[in-house]
């Protein structure tokens, strides 16, 4: 037995699915861009100093001296010496999980938070340590910042592409829905135009027969995206009403954009089909 969907149900389903996808795309894209931006900002606000390990191991006194020199350098807000265990954790991917005596040969790391108003330069910190006879490498996180920037660029293309594909699909759905309705009621519309109905009224009646399913589809898609977004947002540690406000605005804007695109193409098609039908 063949399943026959009610008139307009397919339009509703397609609109809902594409709006949900567009909403999730916008939401995911905004999250990636925001996280990458935040990561980059944080990386730009700090440097990491690695004290070269001496053959007999680096003494705590030398590390403390280096930290004091760094703290006294202009443009440094705060200095934090990372203990050996923390360093071992950070370097675990490169040290294959070294334990016990092996930890002594690892470099000691000092995290330097820069003064946001006049941050110290990498060379300035390196010079200060060198002048005190401390062998150290100062990492200003350029590589990581570049990676964060690349992530933003790389994430933007698929997000925009996905969003554009969804909007193109919605435009097609709006156009096809009106086209199908115009085809179905062609005889009635032609007669009404011949009897003096204004083209504007014909366009209105064509739109009224399609806009409910398009609008309802967009609304349903928006709600589906909101439900999925909310579920993943609430699962994120530290989520609260304030952090969920921005995604809600993005989702509402994406849903409105979807409805606008589908509605605009429906209007354009209705105008064109009515013009074609008028003698």
């Amino acid at each position: 037995m063949r399943l026959r969907l009610p008139q307009g149900f397919a339009t509703f389903l397609i609109t809902a699915a594409l709006t949900a996808l567009a909403g999730l795309c916008a939401l995911g894209g905004a999250t990636v861009l925001e996280r990458a931006g935040g990561w980059r900002t944080r990386l730009a606000g700090e440097m990491t100093v690695a004290i070269r390990p001496a053959p007999a191991g680096t003494s705590d006194a030398e590390v403390t001296r280096a930290a004091e020199i760094l703290a006294g350098t202009r443009g440094v807000a705060e200095v934090r010496v990372l203990d050996r265990r923390r360093v071992a954790g950070l370097l675990a991917p490169w040290t294959a999980g070294a334990r016990g005596p092996d930890l002594a040969v690892l470099p000691r790391l000092i995290a330097v938070d820069l003064d946001g108003r006049a941050p110290a330069q990498r060379q300035g910190l390196a010079d200060a340590l060198s002048a005190a006879g401390i062998g150290a490498i100062v990492d200003d996180h350029q590589g990581w910042r570049r990676a964060a920037l690349d992530l933003r660029r790389q994430a933007a293309a698929p997000v925009l592409g996905g969003l554009a594909a969804c909007l193109a699909g919605l435009a097609a759905a709006g156009s096809l829905a009106v086209g199908r309705e115009a085809e179905r009621s062609q005889q009635a519309l032609r007669t009404r135009l011949r009897l003096g109905e204004s083209p504007g009224d014909c366009v209105r009646s064509l739109l009224l027969s399609c806009l409910p399913e398009l609008g309802l589809g967009a609304l349903t898609g928006g709600l589906i995206a909101a439900a999925l977004g909310l579920a993943s947002g609430l699962a994120t540690p530290g989520a609260n009403a304030a952090t969920l406000a921005q995604p809600a605005v993005i989702l509402a804007a994406a849903t409105a954009l979807c409805a606008l695109v589908a509605g605009t193409l429906a209007l354009v098609t209705a105008l064109r089909r009515t013009r074609d039908m008028e003698p």
């Binding site: 003096g196 204004s198 083209p199």
Partner: peptide, 15 residues
């Protein structure tokens, strides 16, 4: 198109 529609309303047609 609107003007033509107004004119058509002043006509009666038996096709």
């Amino acid at each position: 198109g609107q003007g033509r529609a107004r004119l058509r309303r002043r006509l009666g047609l038996v096709f």
